[in-house]
Amino acid sequence: MKKTSFHIDRETRAGIGFLAPLLLCLIGLILVPVAGTIATSVFRDVPYLPKTFIGAANYVSLLNDPAFWRSLMFTLLFVLVSVPLETVFGLGIALVLNQVFAGRGMLRAAVLIPWAVPAAVSGRIFELIYNYSYGAANRMLALLHMEPANWLGSASGAFLGVVAADAWKTTPFAAIILLAGLSAIPEDLYRQARVDRAGTFQRFFRITLPLLRPVLIVTLLFRTVDALRVFDILYVLTGGGPGGATTSLSLFGYRYFSAGDFGYASAATVILFGIAFLLSLVYLKLGGFSREIR
């Protein structure tokens, strides 16, 4: 008896030793900075005034700041539009890749390319594509004998432009994850369904979708969290314009950090953090992660 308990103790101590570097990194480089940000958010913290505790004043100012509301609305709308769009497209691509046809390996490789490209680079590529005078988008309109469009010039155009550019980069990720889910569905089920004379669409809705549910939730979770913190593509493609129409919360916060206003920026990013945190809790509950980890 005694021996066993000693053994467990040593084992646990070794285990903690193995986990220590990970925990140190996460605490020192992620949890402490987040806590620091929360603490900073109740100060007036600008380089040209003494640092002063001001309680919730930054938050009150934020709630009265139309620019903040605008970027909150943009961020939520961006999530609501881009995540379902990318998931549906991704599912389409995954369904195609799950079929057997010549060149499937090559297509699979092609799908990985946009995923591997840094968002800052894809932002510049799309900036060029949308260029008014010689971008590919307006050249295509010209081929159709249509007027050139100032793609990023209107709030709605810029929104769609950003969603399209983001979709290019992230749909492949959704497709890859969903493909793994698809290939895990036993072929037998489809064979059986065929025998029962279920049509293509019936098979999709009766077998594929229900069995894909857990993977779909994971995909949605990852994509939602990512879309919520969207930054790179906006910084490069629109810079948050026109007129602040595409300023996400991340970009809003960054603007104030880089202007030296740490208190206000911190408060804004704490709100973003809160939203991300709540949403991931909801998803974790939906996906039943805690049950899966035994």
């Binding site: 992620i30 402490v32 900075p33 987040v34 620091g36 940000t37 900073t40 919520l228 913190r229 930054f231 919360l249 991340s250 916060g253 960054y254 950090f257 740490f262 920026a265 911190s266 990013t269 704490v270 973003l272 953090f273 991300a276």
Partner: peptide
Amino acid sequence: PPVSLVGY
């Protein structure tokens, strides 16, 4: 979100 720790 990375932006909520980058400042600190």
